[in-house]
């Protein structure tokens, strides 16, 4: 009996350790996503009230995506995870933006910026360039594959993000188009 209890306790401790480690990772992700959102939002000149909202919304969205993709509970593909996270971002933006008398996009789009698949985008172009400079069929196939896979992933992430993010605007049409009233 005793070894069984011991093993069970060991399991629980392991589980707890895993959850704690995951929580720490998620919090770190949220913090850096918030910094990234503030900075990238600053490039598009938002109203001053929007900075804080963008930071909160982006932190929630990005950490949600991290959790969906990396925790052993979900392990969802990046496209679906982006859509769900963007839906969370969109809902928060629609609910919170009337407090600052701002259109939902003012909070929504800068908050989505940390999730933009920039690396996929330029890797797609890099793959295309490499296609041209490598003549043999196998090399060309390899680089064309890199171009196509990165490009398609980038496109679908963007599409899923925008669909996920703008759906709440249409669900709550009354709030979102009267926020600046």
């Amino acid at each position: 009996m005793l070894p069984v209890i011991r093993a069970l306790r060991g399991n629980v401790v392991d589980e707890l350790k895993y959850v704690l480690a995951m929580l720490l990772q998620v919090l770190q992700d949220a913090l850096f996503a918030a910094i990234a959102a503030i900075g990238f939002a600053a490039i598009s000149n938002p109203p001053k009230k929007a900075y804080l909202l963008c930071a909160i919304i982006a932190a929630a969205g990005h950490s949600a995506r991290y959790l969906l993709m990396n925790s052993s509970l979900f392990e969802i593909h990046i496209v679906a995870a982006s859509a769900i996270a963007a839906f969370i971002v969109g809902t928060l933006a629609v609910i919170l933006s009337p407090y600052g008398k701002m259109p939902a996009e003012t909070c929504l789009f800068p908050s989505l910026l940390p999730m933009i698949p920039g690396i996929y985008a330029y890797k797609a172009f890099g793959g295309l360039m490499m296609c041209l400079s490598h003549g043999t069929e196998t090399e060309f196939d390899h680089y064309f594959y890199l171009f196509a896979s990165n490009g398609l992933t980038c496109l679908f992430i963007l599409l899923s993000m925008v669909i996920g993010g703008t759906l709440p605007i249409f669900f709550f049409k009354n709030i979102s188009f009267q926020a600046t009233r």
Binding site: I43, F109, P110, G118, V162
Partner: peptide, 22 residues
């Protein structure tokens, strides 16, 4: 090297374009 250029990625034009598409 990979992340050093990410501040240039035109995120909002991409988002706007897909929003118009929808």
């Amino acid at each position: 090297v990979g992340t050093s250029v990410l501040y240039l990625v035109p995120g909002i034009p991409f988002l706007n374009s897909f929003s118009d598409l929808l």
